[in-house]
Amino acid sequence: MRRLLTIIPLLAALCYAQDASEACTKALTDCENDLECQNRLAPLMAACSTGTCQPQCRSAVLNVYQNKLGRILLRSDATCIPGRDELRTCNFLPAESTVHCSLGKLACEGDLQCNSKFGVFMSECEADAARGVCSEKCKTLLNQTIETSVGAIFSNCTCTARDDQLCTNLKDNLLGVCLKNTPGVTLSPSDNSITDAPGNDLADSSSSSFKILTVVCVYIFTVLFL
């Protein structure tokens, strides 16, 4: 099993080497050379290749993000990461303009300033927000969170159609109540699932050669895990 976990990232690097940036390639190499990061990365490469925003992909992303080297990789331009188009479409990349709410919360908890502001908001306002009530004080506390560099994610974070209640509760019942009718804030739709939006092509799908390469890589990963 350990040998398999070693092979998968190497195959992935070969599959995506043709247009990978130097920064992403270095981040991927650093992760591959670290056993803990490597073990977290392998499930992501297997789960985030279906184009359907599955919960397994979300869980794998959150697991990788909790590793320092994994965070650096996910914060890169993602050109060397297998399933990068799915990660972008499902908002599982922390450097994008719109980020999955659960990933945003994890990022906030890892930042001292954001975590302290968000912690006050949750302790003071979680109960009321869950009942659909948000006082001016709570709006101010949430705005203070959003004004931090990491907390800005909360202003338009989103969920997928296949999420559990943790994401939708955070987005709709906690953040949504206090962000509603807030000037300059536009709430993102909850459903950004690829399969539920037939006309929504993946970012790089215009390149037929890239699609063929992606199919080959996905097939390799699938065979390895069967």
Rank of each mutant, 00 (worst) to 15 (best):
S205M: 09
N181W: 08
A12L: 09
M45W: 01
A47D: 12
L213Y: 02
L10F: 12
Q18R: 00
V120K: 01
E36L: 10
S209V: 13
G119N: 11
L213D: 14
D164R: 13
L224A: 05
T140C: 07
G151K: 02
D19A: 06
T140M: 12
A203D: 14
D30S: 12
V216Q: 02
C80N: 09
C138L: 13
L87C: 11
D201V: 15
L41G: 11
S76M: 00
S135M: 12
T79N: 07
N67E: 09
D172C: 08
T160M: 07
A129P: 01
P43I: 03
G176E: 00
E124I: 03
L213G: 14
D204N: 15
Y219N: 11
N33V: 10
M122D: 02
E147S: 15
V216N: 05
T98K: 10
V61Q: 04
T29S: 13
A17C: 04
R71P: 00
D77P: 02
V215C: 04
Q18P: 03
G104T: 04
C80P: 01
N91H: 15
S123Y: 03
A130H: 05
T79I: 14
N33T: 13
S207K: 04
T186S: 15
S149G: 09
V61C: 06
L175H: 05
F118I: 00
K117A: 12
S190A: 15
M122C: 11
R162P: 04
L14S: 12
F210P: 04
I220R: 06
G176F: 07
A107N: 07
A23H: 07
C167Q: 10
L11V: 12
T89Q: 13
Q144C: 05
L187F: 06
P43Y: 04
